[in-house]
Simulated scan of single mutants.
Amino acid sequence: MQSLLKNRAFRDAALQVAFVGGLVLMVVAMFLAGRANLEAQGMTSGFGFLERATGWRISFSLIEYDTNSSYAHAVMVGILNSLFLGVISLPIATIIGVTVGVMRTSGNGMAELLGTTFVELFRNVPLILQLLFWYTLLLALPSPRHAEPIFGGIALTGRGIYLPGLNVAASSVFVAFLLLLACFALGLWMNAKRWPGLHLHQARRERNILWALALIAIPVMFWLGRIPETPLVDIPRAAGLNYKGGIRVSPELMACVIAIAIYGAAYIAEIVRAGFNAIPKGQYEAGHALGLSSWHIFSRIRLPLAIRIVMPTMINQYVWLFKATTIGIAISFTDFFMVISTAINQSGQTLELIAILMGGFLIINYSMAWVLNRVNDAIKLKGTQLRI
């Protein structure tokens, strides 16, 4: 025994085992104490309550839901609502952020002033205040009775924004979405593998053909999935005191989208600006020496290199922005967090529901980070090329 204690490897292993064992014992003790307290209060533990009917309504749902639906179904509604909000907000934030970042590095005084004003204004105002501002502004829009359609049937009302929609089966929309994802993934795989004997121009041509086929197939899928005896495009129309037809975007969802997109865009703009400033000036000078135009230097040199530089930071920003979707509870948008909060008040199963909430966000954020890291691996410079 004495010889083992003198062995440094044995001591290190023993300390690690003792540390991990102490953590396990602490977690077990906390679990047993929590269960004992629940039993003392007459509360049952476990996940059996997920099969019970909720008895409460959800104002916004992408799938069918009523008061007789189970808690498990309500949790699924909340997850889908949060994913839907993230899928809309993050691309919009990226487009606005990249645009503002380009403006701040354009060399044009007016563009730089506008970009700087945007960043300093929306980055320094708390997100929750921006959400309340946009929500109040949307509620102040005219009533449906007095709202006039604009831009081909779009109606801005205090009860929501009405947009033209498609009378297409949900399955066709889902298949079209999967087709877009498949084309995107295949394009990244082609870029990462660099098929032997495939020239760069040939690879670009193959990708262009792939996207052309996808753009042709998607309208065909929509046409085949059209609901019988209905027009393909459903235009909102005034009917009494409200609008009928089309797609209604609730003020709560629209306020969350605007607030998250603009607030996230202010941070993304700074990330993009830093990426452009990190590109060595020799890259620009080489482009000018080859006789490239300003647009070609931007699209072929600056933007691709900036994307490679900022991608790791952007992944972290996307994860943070998705967690920011929980602000919807402040204006009663039924996202994942609000559904869990309501379920806790109704069922009393606090520990189980908090565990579901934590597990759900962990899985979603880890999956998003894993996919974006694969994208980063696909676009990074290979071999002995310059790594910037």
Rank of each mutant, 00 (worst) to 15 (best):
G348N: 05
A238K: 15
R302K: 11
L50A: 09
M221F: 09
I301C: 05
G153Y: 00
G97N: 00
F337E: 15
Y71L: 08
I154Q: 05
F19Y: 07
P228K: 04
P149V: 06
G348T: 02
P142K: 10
L362V: 13
P149H: 03
F122H: 04
S347T: 14
A265Y: 01
A265C: 04
I227N: 03
F19G: 08
E51H: 12
I327R: 00
N277L: 15
R205I: 15
L305G: 05
A286N: 09
P144L: 06
A169T: 15
Q16E: 14
L156D: 08
V173D: 12
G187M: 02
C183I: 08
T342E: 13
G158C: 06
V339S: 06
Q346W: 08
N167D: 08
A36Y: 05
P312K: 10
R248N: 14
A185N: 10
D335E: 12
M30F: 08
A14D: 07
V168D: 03
I128R: 07
G245M: 06
Q16W: 10
R204V: 11
A255E: 03
M110S: 14
L127C: 11
D234F: 04
L127W: 06
V272I: 11
S89F: 02
T325H: 02
F184H: 06
K380C: 08
F333P: 00
L50D: 13
D66E: 14
N108Y: 04
Q202T: 14
A29P: 00
E112N: 12
I309P: 01
I344V: 13
S143K: 12
L353I: 15
L198G: 09
Q317P: 05
S45F: 06
G275E: 08
I340K: 03
L224V: 00
W295K: 06
I388N: 10
M103G: 07
V24W: 03
L85I: 10
N108T: 06
M368F: 15
R35L: 13
P280K: 03
K382C: 01
I297R: 15
R302C: 05
L321G: 01
N376H: 13
P228T: 12
G153W: 05
G287L: 04
L127D: 06
R273M: 02
V102P: 01
R11E: 02
L62V: 07
W134K: 04
L141D: 11
H288G: 11
A36I: 09
H73C: 00
G86A: 01
P142H: 05
F19W: 03
D234E: 12
E229V: 12
T342F: 12
L178N: 00
W189I: 15
L38N: 13
Y284C: 01
Y366M: 14
P196G: 08
G197D: 10
M254H: 02
M110R: 12
V98Y: 03
K380Q: 11
A36P: 03
